[in-house]
Design a binder for these strands. Structure first.
Length: 891
RNA sequence: GCCGGGAUGGCGGAAUCGGUAGACGCAGCGGACUCAAAAUCCGCCGCCAGUGAUGGUGUGGGGGUUCGAGUCCCCCUCCCGGCACCA
């Protein structure tokens, strides 16, 4: 046990609790409860068909060093669900593991000269202790780490299956290239177009890499979203938009190039494609459009800088070559592509309009992506906003081909309706004049098809998943490169290809390239000396199936087994909204591949999804003399208040001078606004941390950190303890009051909110129950009320409730107690209060017998003093009675 | 830029089907206990006017539907997440 835990152990000598302590001592209580759970193997799950199963999973953490508050929040949400389902009789599985490959380990290696493997293992050991001290109901016997060979072996195995099925394949990819370090950079390593270490201008470079054909599953990934009612609508919308199914026409502009200097066009990229048809300079420029009705309005075409036509045109055009070079220095990120200035340059190449035969000039555009579609687009400036801006900028012709009744077209400024698909009809389009979108699409597609120059096509925005990473700390791609046999898969019986664990990356390329013992091997086909692939897999591969491995974590001879089909799908998955698209989409894809290989029988991995919001804290900063920004941690700052107590500013404790308040933002090292869960646990205990996290805001929203909010949570738990202490010694006697009905009403609300996963109001219901109990300590139903409070509170604050349950003699283990349900008998009442409104304004209240009919209620309402006063003698036009709620008199 | 989400007192948030806006907590203010402090307990607490009873007003801004809108519709502003090599 590390030093961080010593203060804990010293105080933890109260396992037996001979007499109930008057004071709430979280450290002792929590250690005792955790020891009990460990000794009884309370959370180790096994398959049991006599109970309904509940697989509760939180996204596993990257072992960055220590837990952050986002983890605490994420895992507390999962724990509340796990524990409440356990008490409701489910067979519950809640496992934990480590997303252990990734870039930060390499960065740490560069900084501290430690091998990523050691750094990662140390971090895991520390964070595991932290998770244990939070009292999560985790099955630690299923723990896994993706950097261990017994896990990533199956990444490799499945990759080879995908290769066999043609799902995995090789093609070129565009990467960020640091010319000084001679290495590939991640997007986050590119800062303002320069390498993070070298400051060198980053280039786009095309290198070979492996792809997974997720697009083969695009349709199913889209339509199957409808089978996921337990997913937030917004996540499904984001995924649907990401997949981006669009129907349109793929068509070609034929061309014939003069055989300039005897050079041929470069060979096509793949199959029937770009610029490829005809070696004597005849070819077709393919594009895709969702607006085939505007093809008659094409006045130019634009191709990507990497497009073969651009390459061809640049050969005798140094200016164009320079422009293409400039484009290659840009970012590879879509966000940058979208916001940068749209630039272009003519190639001097003309293609032929497929319908009119007119000459159309080809431009190179920096906004056209080679990796999307055919790497070329048609330009219809009159009906596409971006094309309009481009044409205006370069003086290209604009030809209106769609008109809307009553709307005038102007070349001066763009108007929304120019792009309206629904209402326009074709004009200036010859035989297509007068046709609407649908009819024009049909007619034009038919004409293009007749000429062999196009067809209707469904296209997806989704691109295949590039999984090659030119990095060390990842799962090796199981391939061997042989001079005579080419790329050869590593045979199954030689898996896993084990990553050497003693490398220390230095930032200049992948260290595997320097490791002879890794690199050198025999070709599995011909036996001659060959070289191993040194690229590793994207870490999203690791996280695409870990949830399935938990179910059969100790399976030695298979990736998954029958136990996986017992537990899967995950009944509740919980994680950050930032994973809404990539991780969740890749996992869904991976599941479908595993299903099609006969490995599993389910179609979707996650039945229900909860995307939790981030944890924010206040940001304080000051401009430094040199113009930089110095951040102050919240504990280094004193808030300045006015007489009314409103915060008006802040000063640094160090020098008393003002600092700037920057609002709230995600907790981060760089802004120095993180809060360490460890110190929180040491000061207040895990229950306080958990309770605050659940109470402060609903799970899907951001959570603002508040030290005084934590104090409040602690205060509440102290009161719960005191209430239990008082109840233990005290004999209830007095006549029953309203306590029972109140508690059961609150219970009803709490159960409803729990079902909605709205834990903040469950926590608040617990507080209301305590408030009620404290007002009626001698009520004969106080013990029953307290037992309800303890059980509702136990998933959130499991340690204190565990101790009090035993102390008050409710039973040996609160985990074995049944979840409380409100009793109808406790809820009945014979009168109820209704709100009285006159003209929709609140004017009073009235009491009526429960179940009274409308006319009776109306009569009572009209007779009230308040009604008489505000009706001012006017007759009631209308009386609206909402049973159980209100009466509104309209005059 | 595109896609998704959000905005309610001094603050975090509550309000289930369109039906009492501000539950619960934090901060603040007043009081009790104490030599004192901490801890604890009791009371007040949207804004404006009024000594008060009370009245008006109020859910980012503008418009609409409705007996009634925080909630539904249209337009706008600002903030946050994702954008394919951070995880």
């Amino acid at each position: 046990m590390g030093a961080y835990n010593s203060s804990f152990s010293k105080r933890a000598n109260a396992h037996l609790l001979p007499v109930m302590q008057e004071k709430y001592l979280p450290a002792a209580i929590e250690q005792a409860a955790q020891a009990h759970w460990h000794a009884t193997r309370a959370f180790n799950a096994s398959e049991d068909i006599s109970k309904p199963k509940y697989y509760c999973l939180s996204m596993f953490p990257y072992p960055s060093g220590k837990l952050h508050m986002g983890h605490v929040r994420n895992y507390t949400i999962g724990d509340v669900l796990t524990r409440s389902h356990k008490m409701r009789g489910y067979n519950v599985l809640q496992p934990m593991g480590w997303d252990a490959f990734g870039l930060p380990a390499e960065n740490a290696a560069i900084q501290n000269n430690v091998p990523p493997a050691k750094w990662t293992d140390d971090n895991i050991a520390y964070m595991k202790q932290q998770l244990k001290s939070l009292g999560f109901a985790l099955d630690w016997e299923r723990e896994l780490a993706t950097c261990k060979p017994d896990y990533y072996k199956w990444n490799q195995w499945l990759f080879l299956r995908m290769l066999e099925k043609g799902i995995a394949y090789k093609k070129t990819q565009v990467v960020n290239w640091d010319p000084v370090d001679q290495t590939v950079l991640a997007n986050e390593q590119v800062i303002e177009g320069r390498g993070w270490r070298t400051g060198a201008l980053v280039e786009k470079r095309e290198i070979p890499g492996y792809y997974l054909a997720i697009t083969q599953y695009a349709d199913e990934l889209l339509t199957a979203l409808d089978t996921l009612p337990g997913w937030p609508e917004r996540v499904k919308t984001m995924q649907a938009n990401w997949i981006g199914k669009s129907t349109g026409v793929r068509f070609a502009f034929p061309y014939e190039l003069p055989a300039a200097g005897g050079t041929n066009l470069p060979s096509p990229l793949a199959g029937e494609g770009q610029g490829g048809e005809g070696s004597a300079g005849r070819g077709k420029l393919w594009v895709f459009t969702t607006r085939p009705d505007t093809i008659m309005g094409v006045t130019f075409c634009a191709v990507a800088a990497e497009h073969p036509l651009a390459t061809h045109a640049a050969k005798n055009n140094p200016e164009l070559a320079a422009f293409i070079e400039e484009c290659k220095h840009g970012s590879v990120m879509e966000a940058d592509m979208a916001t940068m200035e749209k630039k272009g340059m003519p190639t001097g190449i003309f293609v032929e309009h497929p319908l009119t035969g007119a000459k159309v000039e080809v431009w190179v555009g920096n906004y056209v992506l080679m990796s999307y579609g055919d790497g070329a687009v048609m330009g219809v400036p009159a009906h596409d906003e971006r094309d309009f801006a481009f044409a205006k900028k370069y003086g290209l012709p604009i030809k209106q081909v769609v008109a809307l009744a009553g709307e005038a077209f102007s070349l001066e400024a763009w108007a929304e309706w120019y792009a309206d698909k629904q209402r326009g009809v074709c004009v200036n389009s010859g035989k297509y004049d007068g046709l609407d979108y649908a009819a024009a699409t049909e007619a034009i597609a038919a004409d293009l098809a007749a000429k062999g120059l196009g067809e209707k096509k469904v296209q997806f925005r989704l691109r295949d998943w590039g999984v090659s990473r030119q990095r060390y700390w990842g799962c090796p791609i199981p391939l061997i490169h042989c001079e005579s046999c080419g790329s050869v898969p590593v045979p199954d019986d030689q898996l896993p290809v084990v990553l050497p664990e003693d490398c220390v990356p230095d930032g200049a390329g992948n260290p595997l390239n320097k490791r002879a013992d890794f690199l050198n091997c025999a070709c599995p086909k011909c036996g001659k000396p060959a070289a191993r692939e040194t690229d590793t897999m994207d870490t999203f591969v690791d996280s695409s199936w870990y949830y399935a491995r938990y179910c059969a974590a100790n399976a030695m001879t298979a990736m998954v087994d029958a136990r996986t089909d017992y537990w899967m799908p995950v009944d509740q998955y919980i994680g950050g909204i930032e994973h809404a698209i990539l991780h969740l989409l890749y996992s869904r894809f991976w599941t479908k591949v595993m299903r099609d290989l006969g490995l599993v029988s389910y179609d979707e991995p996650f039945a229900n999804l909860l995307t939790q919001g981030m944890v924010l804290n206040h940001i304080f900063s000051r401009r430094s003399d040199r113009g930089g920004i110095i951040y102050y941690a919240p504990e280094e700052v004193e808030l300045v208040r006015d007489a009314a107590g409103h915060v008006t500013g802040a000063t640094a404790k160090a020098d008393g001078l003002p600092v700037d308040y920057g609002g709230v933002g995600t907790m981060s090292k760089s802004k120095r606004n993180g809060v360490d869960p460890q110190s929180l646990i040491e000061q207040y205990g895990a229950d306080t941390a958990r309770f605050f996290m659940m109470f402060a805001s609903p799970p899907e929203q951001t959570l603002e950190w508040s030290d005084s909010g934590v104090e409040g949570a602690y205060r509440f738990l102290k009161r719960v303890w005191a209430c239990g202490h008082a109840l233990k010694s005290q004999a209830a006697a007095k006549e029953a009051g309203a306590l029972r009905r109140e508690i059961h009403l609150l219970l009803k609300q709490a159960n409803y909110d729990l079902g909605k996963l709205q834990f903040n109001t469950v926590a608040s219901a617990c507080m209301k129950m305590l408030n009620a109990l404290e007002k009626a300590p001698a009520d004969p139903h106080a013990r029953e009320a307290f037992s309800i409070l303890l059980r509702v509170l136990s998933p959130i604050a499991p340690h204190i409730t565990h101790a009090l349950w035993i102390e008050l003699g409710y039973g040996p283990d609160i985990l074995a107690a049944t979840w409380p349900e409100p009793l109808d008998a406790a809820l009945v009442q014979d009168e109820e209060e209704l709100v009285l409104q006159v003209n929709g304004k609140l004017r009073g209240a009235l009491r009526v017998k429960v179940g009274a009919d409308r006319t009776a209620i109306e009569a009572v309402a009209l007779a009230t003093e308040a009604a008489q006063k505000f009706m001012e003698g006017k007759p009631a036009k209308k009386v609206i009675v909402v049973p159980g709620r209100l009466v509104n008199i309209v005059v």
